[in-house]
Write a protein that binds this DNA or RNA. Structure first.
Length: 940
RNA sequence: GCGGGGGUUGCCGAGCCAGGAAAAGGCGCAGGGCUUAAGACCCUGUCCCGAAGGGGUCCGCGGGUUCAAAUCCCGCCCCCCGCACCA
């Protein structure tokens, strides 16, 4: 009958909980260093899944490992519910949205009747928090549950308010506007998973250059939108599509834009008012002024103009834009149009104006040259034109330099001009920005076309602040990032990070304390909450209430500002509590390791660093960050919102906690993704059962005096200990499990096959070695013999004195000899016996000398100076050559005869044939081939 | 496009930084043992050739360095992830 993993697991989880095994309190003795490890709390808009399982299990393995190393480990957990998705989910459930119901019943394993109850955010939070808690307990993480909290807890909100006041005081929060993807129908920003189409689209900022036309009613702005503002110096004309446009009042100006552009402008921070519709025709042939150069350029018609892109007003730069060049050439031949607008002469006289020199290329007029080369004839050849545009832009961007014609900008690289020019234009009142999607259409799940909305007066975290950024970059150098090559990634991301809007109109969370219209956005409220775990213990035990968490108390506890008496007095807690909290905080902080999925690198983990550095003194900044990859299911990407998904609970129910843990730890390393494959998981379960059976068969046996084979096993165990410890120091759980479990299993198998009986000799250490990875089964087996918790035992030390090189080499010798004999028997046909002849002693000596000598000639010289070898020069010489040719490694320390004799039973058992050392029976020519460590074998 | 990572034997995945094994381990597959049978368990094989422990060809593609390259150098092709205000 085989072991029921689940039963064993539940038993020990209960024990651990009842005995408070993982409750962490500051240690009195300084001999026990502390280790504070945190994992990002999960967001509760669904059940915990295999992705969480991976990140959390890595964290738990480290926590358990460190604990066994003698660290005082604090491993806490909380729940994240801030933001909009939970509200969205509650609404969808309330609306009985089919897709949502399908996904949540099928993939999140929520019972339909329960799911249908979850119609408010509060119910959603309550349900999934309960589920998460039981999932996390069911897998047996060594979490100190006295510190759990939810981010909507009142006390947590106090803590967040305190943090935001601090940031405000330090002037790290500023006001501004920013563009978001927005659905006019839902009147809400749209997230990726709310999109029907256009997930790939990004928001790009077109530069608007305000060409103008003086009419009798005043100035009309023709806002040309471009991604390449530097080409304003090469404008020969502007393009309109011959269709209806509108005149609109934009702030204090009158703009000529497409109807679509007008609609879009209404979502920006500008004051917009529609004046009237106008025909583009009535302006064609007229001249507008280029505000940058002062030149007057004509307005011309072009079909390629897309009125649904940016303003619908386009400046024409035929020297550098293939579209423009082709359009002009086409127009030149289009007599009907020329005549219609009376623009024949104007058009014929247009000449491209070159303003960029491309180094190492001999373009004269780039757009012209490439269009001719590609033989593009019409502006309708969109595909070709796109390609031409890309090619030219790529070259100009990387290798282009602005020419004298650009005045002050001459000599600047194209790659460095855009932002500068855009700002200059805006400053001079002749430029602006128009946000547009990079791809279209972008459609919301409700079917409405999305727009870019500019949110006004938004609160921003001032991450672009050079001083702040500089400090973060400096600290990055000092702290540890695992794997190490992610440091570069972090550096890049920190440099790239811009100001981040930290306030929202909608969602769960904490209000900005000085502007209660706004809620603190969810990534912005989870930056230094690891500090809150220390406070949460007091809140959960009832000693401290939310209203006690005043500025004074938090200032004192977290920053040491003021004194306990004052802090206590104003907050209403007693002095002792204030002091204790401060002591706890200083004991546990800083965070020693934050271990997280790689999806959080470009956001949460950055904010985590930024905020710690802003708020706390240097000695409390995070010490290390580790990053791990995702989990896929049978090769398919998991998705919370679409499936497939494997919940943590289901994995544990089906396979058991230990199997799930071992599998996920072993499936891959670092940031590479793990694949959950049922077959492999089942294979692992079989291995773990095998382990359990070994324990049953051997663990309780009396330990015998070790013989050579036992010493081999102990020696192998030492290697495994070393390897496992080394791997864990680098957070390589895959390597660690490989060494501690799989490789040990193989060694044990060999040991038993060789006739070993004394397996109990390593079992205690083996159990301890495995305990961080498969804690339940180890705890179970351990208790067959001990009363203590293996979870609190000390981790096996690598003991060099137990490394037995001779035993290991001898075993290797046996293995190779067996292999050779098998190889021979494969071809030998029917034989009755195998005879072995060990290499003569002189060969051993020659090998030694040869290896010292280093090359053939030197070796021969030394050897031949010994008269014993003179008589057999030929044989010696060919042997020496062979040593070098085969890069021969002898088995110097092996007493071959002894080893073979002691393994004869084993050989005979394995081969089913008689095996004997008997040089007499081995033909001379075979004997001659024998090498030290590789005896002659003869089968007859 | 920018930035980061990567392409290894049927699959997954080590090895690459510190050149020197047909290349760990797992899975799959095949054969054998055990068993009344199934399962579990144990063993063996799994690039090609080979009736004596051997030989040959291999690590995205093409060059190069070296006595020796999956590992170092150069060029090329392909794949994955991030580029945000979303958890």
């Amino acid at each position: 009958m085989s072991v029921d993993f689940r039963e064993v697991e539940k038993k020990w989880q209960k024990e651990w909980e009842e005995k408070g095994v993982f409750h962490a309190e500051p240690a009195e003795s300084s001999e026990k260093p502390k280790f504070f490890i945190t994992i990002p709390y999960p967001y509760l808009n669904g059940n915990l899944h295999a992705g969480h399982t991976r990140t959390f299990t890595i964290g738990d393995a480290v926590a358990r490992y460190k604990r066994m190393l003698g660290y005082n480990v604090l491993f806490p957990m909380g729940f994240h519910v801030t933001g909009t998705p939970i509200i969205g989910l509650a609404e969808l459930i309330a609306k009985r949205d089919e897709r949502t119901i399908d996904v949540y019943t099928k993939f999140h394993d929520v019972h339909l009747d329960e799911l249908l109850q979850l119609t408010t955010p509060e119910k959603v939070v309550e349900y999934f928090a309960r589920e998460a808690l039981s999932a996390l307990k069911g897998i047996g993480y060594s979490i100190d549950w006295r510190r759990v909290f939810t981010t909507t807890d009142e006390a947590y909100q106090r803590f967040i308010e305190w943090q935001y006041w601090k940031l405000k005081e330090k002037n790290l929060i500023v006001k501004g506007s920013h563009p978001v993807r927005y659905c006019p129908h839902d009147a809400n920003p749209v997230e990726d998973h709310d999109l029907l189409m256009g997930e790939e689209a990004t928001i790009v900022d077109y530069t608007i250059i305000k060409f103008y036309f003086e009419s009798k009613d005043g100035r009309i702005i023709f806002p040309c939108a471009t991604l390449r503002p530097e080409t304003v110096f090469g404008v020969t004309n502007i393009w309109l599509k011959p269709t209806r446009y509108v005149l609109a009042k934009v702030d204090d100006e009158v703009w000529f834009v497409s109807r679509e552009a007008y609609e879009k402008l209404t979502f920006t921070d500008k004051k917009v008012e529609l004046l009237r519709e106008v025909d583009a025709d009535q302006f064609i042939g007229k001249y507008v002024t280029n505000p940058v150069t002062g030149n007057n350029v004509p307005i011309l018609p072009a079909e390629f103009v897309d009125t649904d892109n940016a303003t619908g007003v386009v400046m024409s730069v035929p020297a550098h834009a293939p579209y423009d060049y082709v359009a002009i050439e086409e127009l030149k031949k289009d007599d009907k149009t020329l005549e219609k607008y009376g623009i024949g002469e104007i058009v014929q006289n247009l000449r491209p104006i070159v303003l960029i020199k491309i180094e190492d290329e001999d373009y004269e007029v780039p757009a012209k040259d490439i269009v001719e080369e590609m033989e593009i004839k019409s502006q309708k050849e969109v595909e070709q034109l796109e390609k031409a545009t890309k090619t030219i832009y790529k070259k100009e961007f990387h290798k282009g330099v602005l020419l004298e014609i650009t005045g002050d900008y001459a000599g600047i690289k194209v790659s460095q001009i855009k932002e500068r020019l855009q700002q200059d234009l805006i400053r001079n009142g002749i430029g602006d920005i128009f946000y547009e999607f990079s791809e279209k259409p972008v459609v919301c799940r409700c079917g409405t076309k999305c727009v870019v909305k500019v949110v006004k007066d938004q609160w921003f975290l001032n991450y672009s602040n050079p001083e702040w950024k500089g400090k973060v970059l400096e600290w990055l150098d000092e702290m540890a990032i695992i794997p190490e090559y992610y440091k570069e990634e972090f550096r890049n991301k920190i440099e790239w990070l811009k100001d981040k809007a930290c306030a929202r109109r909608k969602g769960l969370g904490t209000r900005i304390p000085w502007d209660r219209e706004w809620l603190i956005e969810s990534l912005s409220d989870s930056t230094i909450y690891m500090a809150y775990y220390i406070i949460a213990k007091y809140v959960n035990s009832g000693v401290v209430k939310a209203e006690n968490l005043t500025k004074e108390l938090l200032d004192y506890v977290l920053l040491g500002i003021g004194n306990p008496e004052e802090a206590a007095g104003k907050s209403g807690v007693d002095v002792k509590t204030a002091e204790e909290m401060r002591k706890d905080f200083l004991y546990w902080y800083p965070v020693d390791l934050r271990s997280s999925g790689k999806d959080l690198v470009a956001n949460h983990l950055l904010f985590f660093l930024f905020h710690h550095i802003a708020i706390f003194p240097k000695e409390l900044w995070p010490r290390a960050i580790a990053v791990n990859g995702f989990v896929s299911l049978e090769g398919k990407k998991m998705s919370k919102s679409k499936g497939p998904l494997l919940t943590m609970k289901r994995a544990v129910e089906e396979f058991g906690a230990d199997v799930t843990r071992l599998y996920i730890l072993h499936a891959s390393e670092y940031d590479s993704d793990a694949d959950w494959r049922r077959k492999d998981v089942e294979g692992l379960a079989a291995n773990l059962r095998r382990f359990y059976n070994l324990a049953k068969d051997y663990y309780l046996k009396d330990v015998q005096q070790p013989d050579q084979l036992d010493r081999w096993l102990m020696s192998r165990l030492q290697r495994a200990i070393k390897e496992t410890r080394d791997a864990m120091e680098k957070l390589q759980t895959r390597r660690a499990v490989n060494a501690a479990f799989f490789e040990m299993m193989n060694d044990v198998r060999w040991y038993l096959r060789r006739g070993g009986k004394n397996l109990a000799i390593i079992f205690d250490d083996w159990l301890k070695l495995l305990a961080p990875f498969a804690p339940h089964i180890c705890e179970e087996i351990w208790h067959w013999k001990h009363d203590s918790f293996i979870s609190l035992e000390s981790y096996p030390e690598y003991d060099e004195t137990k490394v037995d090189e001779v035993a290991e080499v001898s075993e290797e010798y046996v293995r190779m000899l067996l292999e050779d004999m098998k190889e021979i028997l494969k071809f030998a046909g029917d034989v009755e016996a195998v005879y072995i002849a060990i290499a003569e002693d002189w060969k051993r000596e020659v090998v030694r000398v040869a290896r010292e000598a280093g090359d053939v000639r030197k070796a021969m010289k030394i050897i031949m100076s010994d008269e014993r070898f003179r008589g057999m020069a030929k044989e010696v010489s060919s042997f020496v050559k062979r040593i070098f040719k085969e890069r021969f490694e002898g088995f110097d320390s092996v007493n071959e005869e002894e080893v073979i004799n002691s393994a004869l039973d084993f050989f005979e058992r394995e081969l089913g044939i008689k095996v004997k050392i008997d040089p007499e029976k081995v033909p001379v020519e075979k004997r001659r081939a024998a090498m030290p460590g590789k005896p002659a074998i003869y089968a007859v």
